[in-house]
Computed example of a mutant assay.
Amino acid sequence: MKEEPSQNIENDDLYEHHRFVASDGQIPLRVDKFLMNFIENATRNKIQQAAKAGNILVNDVVVKSNQKVKPGDIVRVVLAYPPPENLLVAENIPLDIVYEDDTLIVVNKPAGMVVHPGHGNYSGTLVNGLIHHIENLPTNANERPGLVHRIDKDTSGLLVVAKTEFALAHLSKQFFDRTTERLYYALVWGNIEGDEGRIEGNIGRSLKNRLQMAVFPEGDFGKHAVTHFKVLERLTYVTLVQCKLETGRTHQIRAHFKHIGHTLFNDERYGGNDILKGTTFTKYKQFVHNCFKVLPRQALHAKTLGFTHPVTGKFMQFDSEIPKDISDCLEKWRTYSEHSKEIEEQ
């Protein structure tokens, strides 16, 4: 067995505290006993309570305390609070700055960059770069300097960051009051019915998988969430949509579209990295896997961001280009779709 460096769980309220990989010689052993052997000062009761709360995962699946650990299994313990040693360090990280003044800064975050540090991932985040670029960023209640909102690690796109306490409060209220404008582009599996629509359903942490958010349409759990969408392009087995957020819940677009049967393309956490639509032909399967290689993350981009400037009172709107990995994937699907139409017309 070896313990590997932990990584934060992006855009989430859980923090990874331990990550173990069972050795090749590991005999099948209950996960609670397995963890007791390697976590200092752990008790059987504490581990069992963590399992009961859904905070122990084996190979990214929530397990009970009697789950058997086998060779090669990845065992993780995630808890709802950050480790105490989580410190912010300024780093000279290149930032794609779209706009900046004395009050705020708008950045275009690339896919793969975590927004703020978490346990096991203290460096290379957007916040690390921001505190190097800007001195004395205001801190919100969650100790995240300047952050008004967040996007997932593997989602690209626009973020606004406050440079003053007043701007932080003003912008935060705009997001709370839902007066901001946020438009996302998403490539989803399947051919969506209708040219536009509205998805409504409470979003909360999944009761089956703590790393996912789930939709609770009866409103008995989670927080109210609404996503509006408009179809931009139909590409045979996938659809390009524009999403307008009425609310801003964790993984909102990802969870909502999975709920209606149109999981985001190559969204590994929600099952979009499987071939969910299409044919059984080997060539088609190879085509999709080639698309996955071109776009090795969920097909989601925060394209447009609008808000009222805290000082001038002017409504400002920013737009970003679709990143190359998504545009390259779209071109592949356009070529495939045109070829499919030609075959049908013959």
Rank of each mutant, 00 (worst) to 15 (best):
F307Q: 02
E268R: 13
T239W: 08
Y336I: 00
N41L: 04
H256C: 07
Q48C: 06
L207V: 14
G248N: 03
Q298H: 14
G313M: 10
K283L: 06
R198S: 08
I39A: 03
P296C: 05
T227F: 00
Q286Y: 02
K314R: 15
E344L: 15
V106Y: 03
G129I: 11
V69A: 08
P138W: 02
I343N: 00
S65V: 06
L183S: 04
G120N: 09
T282Y: 07
P138V: 02
L29P: 01
K314T: 12
H224K: 15
I199H: 08
R198E: 13
H119A: 15
D177H: 14
D325W: 03
H116A: 08
S65G: 00
A111Y: 05
Q7K: 14
K341C: 03
T308Q: 09
L183D: 09
F307W: 10
I47Y: 08
K314G: 00
Y81F: 10
F315P: 06
V77Q: 01
V107E: 02
R19F: 10
T43G: 13
R144T: 13
D154I: 05
P84M: 00
V188D: 00
V98C: 04
L168I: 09
N59I: 05
P296Y: 15
V89Q: 14
R150E: 01
D60C: 09
L126R: 06
I105S: 04
G194A: 06
T180G: 02
L147Y: 07
K2M: 12
V58K: 08
I74F: 01
S172N: 10
I9F: 12
K283Q: 10
H17P: 01
F265Q: 06
N8H: 12
V106T: 10
D274M: 12
L35E: 02
N45A: 08
V78D: 01
L264N: 07
R249S: 01
E85N: 15
V58Y: 04
V62I: 06
R44M: 11
H259Y: 15
L126S: 00
V89F: 12
K277N: 13
T308K: 12
F166G: 00
L159T: 02
T247Y: 11
Q48D: 05
Q346E: 12
K324I: 13
G222C: 06
Y184K: 02
K68I: 09
D267N: 09
I322E: 07
S327W: 06
P117E: 03
L187H: 05
K332H: 11
S172F: 06
L29C: 13
V106K: 09
Q298N: 09
S23W: 06
V89G: 01
N209P: 07
E321N: 14
Q7L: 12
P82I: 05
V226G: 07
S172Y: 04
I192G: 03
P84A: 07
G54H: 07
E200F: 11
K244W: 04
